[in-house]
């Protein structure tokens, strides 16, 4: 028996919105520790890694490890039928071929359930090595989304260049070029407005706008985003989901031919 209950359906809606651009379907691996998902996008350029800890749920029970293959568009349809503040309970029997989502309104006057067929997905798990990154940048998630959106108008790639002075986002295309520089904040009123850079070595890497834009669909999940970079390894874009877990995106850099 698997049962996971979350007080506000909106958190799960935000998670789905954050991954359904990149993934058509995905396997949710459920264990006593929580729910995990790891999947590459269709073109195998990026990797999505989601972890929701069991202690972040209002109620969580997982008697046996289970993998639920789900179509994310179907799941989104179901979650669109819930109100943001509905309590959601995800339920499945051991070895079941369906999963049930139950939504309860706050005043309990409306209870709905949706049963969805599970899919058998070919799982390809990748081992993600521990890396000591040369640069770790923390910045407001909204600011990162804004910069990626703005620069995407001008080019197909964004060069992210991090030094101890700050981080620079650059692009160029048919109409010209664009640069956005962010300095590390020395003082800030709110922690979520801070730009903080931890640099061992300066790094400059190039990434495809298309994927960076897809990652920023996670912006509603967190105030801050963390970018981790080292030469010749994938960028990690991480959003912490408050009290529940994290969503990480890995993106292979573009390299000179």
């Amino acid at each position: 028996m698997f049962e996971a209950r979350l007080i506000n359906s909106v958190t799960f809606k935000k998670v789905l919105d954050a991954i359904k651009d990149l993934l058509n379907e995905a396997s949710f691996d459920c264990s006593e520790a929580g729910i995990q998902l790891q999947a590459m996008d269709n073109s195998h350029v990026s990797l999505v890694s989601l972890a929701l800890r069991s202690d972040g749920f209002d109620k969580y029970r997982c008697d046996r490890n289970l993998t639920m293959g789900m179509n994310l568009a179907s799941m989104s349809k179901i979650f669109r039928c819930s109100s943001n503040d509905d309590t959601v309970t995800i339920k499945a029997q051991d070895d079941a071929d369906t999963v049930t989502f139950m939504f309860e309104s706050k005043k309990q006057e409306k209870i709905s359930d949706y049963e969805m067929k599970l899919m058998n997905l070919d799982q390809e798990h990748l081992g993600i090595p521990d890396t000591d990154f040369s640069c770790v940048i923390r910045m407001p998630a909204g600011e990162f989304a804004r910069i990626v959106r703005d620069l995407s108008q001008f080019g197909e790639s964004i060069v992210i260049s991090c030094t101890k002075e700050g981080v620079k986002f650059s692009t160029s295309g048919d109409i010209g070029s664009a640069n956005v520089k962010l300095a590390q904040t020395s003082s800030f009123e709110k922690e979520e407005e801070a730009v903080i850079i931890e640099m061992q070595e300066p790094v400059t890497l190039t990434f495809a706008c298309q994927y960076l834009n897809s990652f920023t669909k996670a912006t509603p999940l967190a105030n801050q985003v963390q970018l981790s970079m080292s030469d010749n390894v994938p960028l990690v874009v991480e959003y912490q989901i408050p009290d529940l877990g994290h969503l990480r995106y890995y993106l292979a850099p573009k390299i000179e031919e």
Partner: peptide, 14 residues
């Protein structure tokens, strides 16, 4: 010119 590597170039299957 730049080329786009795949993520599996960096992370191996387990």
């Amino acid at each position: 010119r730049t080329k786009q590597n795949r993520i599996s170039h960096y992370f191996k299957k387990t």
